[in-house]
Amino acid sequence: MSAPGGPSPRRPAFAPLAEETRAAMRRLMARYPNPRSALMSMLYLVQAEHGCVSEAGIEEVAGMLDLTKAEVASVATFYTMLKREPLGRYLVSVCTQPPCALAGAGSLRRALEEELGVGFGQTTPDGAITLEEVECVCVCDGAPAVQVNYESYEHLTPEAAVELVRKLRSGGAVPPPVHGSVPVPREAIHRELAGLGGHDPDRGGGES
């Protein structure tokens, strides 16, 4: 897609989607009267497999839904949770909005950047962690907040934050957040966002 400033310098080529993913996409399409309603879920599945909404994924999804690539890219570039650069295993999102900023988000950011050696919007060379900035994640009472694969950690100190990413990187056990559960790796979280996680109605079990 012609992003501002032209194509991105590092846009790896991806293999075609796995047959299993395609089958899952077809199941998603069958859930709606108009299959195109499954578009966003399908893009999360692409992200589960490729780590981002890849060109190859856009092409496949467009083909399956009889949309143009432009129409798919229009959605893929609109939503901030759909990424166009491959994500690391864990996405660490630092809230920088005023309540968190007043509670010390700035020092969290500096500590994390120093620890990881990357800035917002970048991924560590080992592919473990992508650091990003987000707007309010709705736990302002727990400011400053950081999300790890969309699980919110609250009242973090710079030291605790560094400790957290070290554990994530080394594969060690991380503590659960106050609310929610221990972050699951990238693939699982995007399958869940696609509507195929723990509550996959196609596999039985309760759908919320």
């Binding site: 897609m1 012609s2 992003a3 501002p4 194509p7 060109e55 856009i58 949309l67 143009t68 690539k69 432009a70 129409e71 890219a73 229009s74 570039t77 609109f78 901030t80």
Partner: peptide
């Protein structure tokens, strides 16, 4: 349908897909 609005906010723009 080969043109669409890409991106959001201040960067929103009309675009065609790179190879389409």
């Amino acid at each position: 349908r080969f043109i669409a609005l890409f991106e959001r906010g201040a960067l929103q723009q009309v675009a065609a897909y790179e190879d389409e």
